[in-house]
């Protein structure tokens, strides 16, 4: 983590749907928390019995609120354990170590119109966006793709939302992405946050329609994608060899053996954890490295990427 950490205390947990848990966190020592703007997230250190998870969650509390941070966590069936821990173990009174808020997905202040597309739990950063836009009066529209049964789940956070549409997987209710993107005025900024397939489809559709890349913004939640075939990593500077298991990321394995590894987003987006590869072939899963850097094979983002070879030697 970058900089100081925060000690938080769980004030309330509340199941808002069968797989969605709302968690309210305050400063463990009392007093105000550092302020966070729309789109910010915090990284929570979740201490299980056998292992530790560090997961990033978007703050859904209104931007600037300093009395509490609120997050919503979806329980993922093929969870690596972090979301299951939040759903099964976490209870009021528990203490958690968290990063300071960071923001890799802030709204564009020069936009004349904000067009948001959310997929599933990817709606969470937009809950703070909507609060921000309602406060500033900025023109906005939110298009939510979700299960039919969850169209009302986030209503408490969307009272002030301007234009709001829900879509689900049934004839006549699916979002026509190309049609939506075709009719937007100049000065619109597009934001998408959802599963990788939705993100990719929206980004591709925007490019096809002629949107300038400067007006298309995406937040991936890639940590769930960090598992895979086990391999060995050798940290050349510290002389440590570590086995990377199938359900943990390379970064988590590095942290498990106590090596220092800077990181921020834990989703392959920010570039803070970029590490030199001395031997072996990386399997790139990040959204940060360019095509040439990927081909070069000399850099890796350990938070999401893994190895094609059975062994990687890292400059750590």
């Amino acid at each position: 983590m970058i900089g100081d950490t925060l000690e938080l205390i769980v004030v309330a947990v509340d199941d808002i749907a069968s797989s969605l848990r709302h968690v309210r966190l305050a400063a463990a020592g009392g007093g105000p928390l550092p302020p966070a703007a729309a789109g910010a997230n915090i990284q929570l250190r979740l201490q299980g019995a056998a292992r530790t998870w560090r997961n990033a969650y978007s703050l859904i509390s209104p931007p600037g609120r300093r009395d509490a941070y609120e997050i919503i966590v979806r329980r993922v069936p093929e969870s690596r354990g972090g979301s299951a821990f939040v759903h099964e173990v976490l209870k009021p009174g528990d203490r958690l170590v968290a990063s300071w808020p960071s923001n890799l997905f802030a709204p564009q202040r020069t936009a004349r119109h904000h067009l948001m597309i959310a997929g599933g739990i990817g709606i969470t950063p937009f809950l703070s966006y909507v609060a921000d836009f309602a406060h500033s009066g900025a023109s906005h529209a939110l298009h939510v793709c979700c299960r039919e049964s969850e169209t009302g789940t986030f209503a408490p956070w969307l009272q002030a939302c301007g234009e709001l549409h829900h879509y689900w997987d049934a004839d006549g209710h699916r979002l026509d992405i190309p049609a939506l993107l075709a009719r937007q005025p100049a000065g619109t900024h597009l934001y998408v946050c959802g599963p990788a397939a939705l993100n990719d489809e929206v980004i591709q559709a925007a490019a096809n329609a002629g949107w300038p890349a400067s007006h298309v913004h995406c937040e991936h939640f890639g940590a769930a994608l960090s598992g895979g075939t086990p391999f060995t990593a050798f940290l050349s500077r510290s002389g440590i060899e570590v086995e990377v298991g199938e359900s943990e990321s390379l970064l988590e394995a590095i942290e498990r053996v106590g090596a220092a590894a800077p990181c921020l987003c834990r989703g392959g987006a920010c570039g803070v954890c970029v590490t030199r590869v001395l031997e072996g072939e990386p399997e790139h899963r990040d959204h940060y490295l360019g095509a040439a850097e990927r081909e070069g094979g000399e850099l890796i983002m350990p938070c999401v990427s893994r190895a094609r070879s059975t062994r990687l030697v890292l400059d750590l």
Partner: peptide, 8 residues
């Protein structure tokens, strides 16, 4: 009708 986002 103003400019569109795909105009150049």
């Amino acid at each position: 009708d103003g400019f569109g986002i795909a105009d150049r």
